[in-house]
């Protein structure tokens, strides 16, 4: 029954991707990439990947759009026209043809007898109820069977924010002729003059944070978890910064606090693993936390690591935003970024 819906969504996706390729207005292209992510999120939902859809919507349509718009405000708004060349197109068509040939021997879409559905996955589904008692199988596998991957994932986002801070974290010592010092306070002042936006945001931001906390702690039962919650809470704080100005925000959540927070988040995740080592188990073996009731121990472990992910991601999102906004040369980052929320 969902067949036609999928076809239509895929057609939309193709159209959006082509538009991104053809548009010369980079602002419009950035919005189209956001729409691309949103459409993919719809498709992920149809394919039963609700957690992936949730994350893609929050990340692709939210955070990365804000990042693109902030970058564009600092760089250029239009792409220059260039003569068309054949080589990249030929290369891409050739690669695509190879990939299509490779798909011919694949199990068909949705085939329940495909190897991936019979080999490892059934154990995950059976184990979720037997060993964990956690309804959301994705959260469960993420934090337990593949908890080490998720630790790596937390470190990836940590690495990215360290890298962004290394690259953008300091003011330029001698601004070139084309650059001015940051004008963030004035830029924000204009947004602050929008009485309606101000009032609405004051009502909405606490709700968003509350929703983030719900996502964080409800991740065992429904779609969600530390990463999604971190993105949502981070987005709420960024929204506050967009409206009330970077300097106001930095008074509320100073940068050193966030740096400590992100480090503590990673350490909380890794430390949970070390704690399980010290209590005689393998790394990230949460069952040892409660020798009488392994299920309870695993719950505790998953709660702790999800908490670590949530803290680290929240702080990482805000820190990355600080680094870009701190370099803001024009107020577009704030106007357009606010519109993109």
């Amino acid at each position: 029954m969902d067949f036609p819906v999928e076809v239509i969504l895929f057609l939309f996706l193709l159209a959006t991707a082509l538009t991104v390729a053809l548009l010369e207005d980079l602002f419009a292209a950035a919005m189209m990439t956001g729409i691309f992510s949103l459409l993919s999120a719809c498709l992920f939902t149809l394919m039963d990947a609700v957690d992936v859809a949730f994350t893609e919507a929050a990340v692709g349509a939210g955070v990365s759009t804000v990042l693109f718009l902030s970058t564009l405000a600092l760089t250029a708004q239009r792409e220059k026209q260039h003569p068309f060349t054949w080589f990249p197109l030929l290369l891409v068509i050739l690669t695509g043809a190879c990939l299509v040939t490779g798909t011919l021997d694949m199990p068909h879409y949705g085939d329940p007898k495909a190897p991936i559905h019979v080999h490892v996955a059934p154990e995950y589904i059976a184990g979720a109820e037997r060993d964990f008692g956690i309804p959301n199988i994705v959260t469960n596998v993420l934090a337990s069977y593949r908890g080490y991957d998720t630790f790596g994932e937390t470190v990836v986002i940590f690495t990215a924010s360290v890298g962004v801070m290394l690259l953008l974290g300091h003011r330029r010592r001698r601004p070139g002729p084309a650059h001015r010092p940051t004008i963030t306070p004035e830029g924000a002042a204009r947004m602050r003059d929008f009485a309606i936006v101000r009032v609405v945001s004051m009502g909405v931001i606490p709700l968003i944070v509350l929703f983030g906390l719900y996502v964080q702690f409800h991740g065992d039962f429904g779609p969600g978890g530390g990463f999604q919650a971190g993105v949502i809470i981070g987005a709420a704080v960024i929204l506050y910064g967009l409206i009330f100005g970077l300097s106001t925000l930095q008074r509320v959540v100073p940068s050193p606090l966030l740096e400590t927070g992100i480090a503590l988040g990673v350490l909380l995740y890794g430390g949970t693993g070390v704690a399980s080592l010290l209590m005689g188990g393998h790394y990230l073996d949460y069952a040892v936390f409660d020798s009488d009731d392994p299920k309870h121990g695993r719950h505790l472990g998953i709660l702790l690591v999800e908490g670590g992910v949530g803290i680290a991601v929240t702080c990482a999102m805000i820190l990355i935003f600080y680094s870009f906004a701190g370099r803001a040369l024009a107020r577009e980052a704030f106007d357009e970024g606010g519109g993109g929320q």
Binding site: I196, V197, S201, G338
Partner: peptide, 10 residues
């Protein structure tokens, strides 16, 4: 709550 506010800001 948010739709009109976003439209207004835009």
């Amino acid at each position: 709550y948010t739709g009109p506010a976003a439209g207004h800001a835009l």
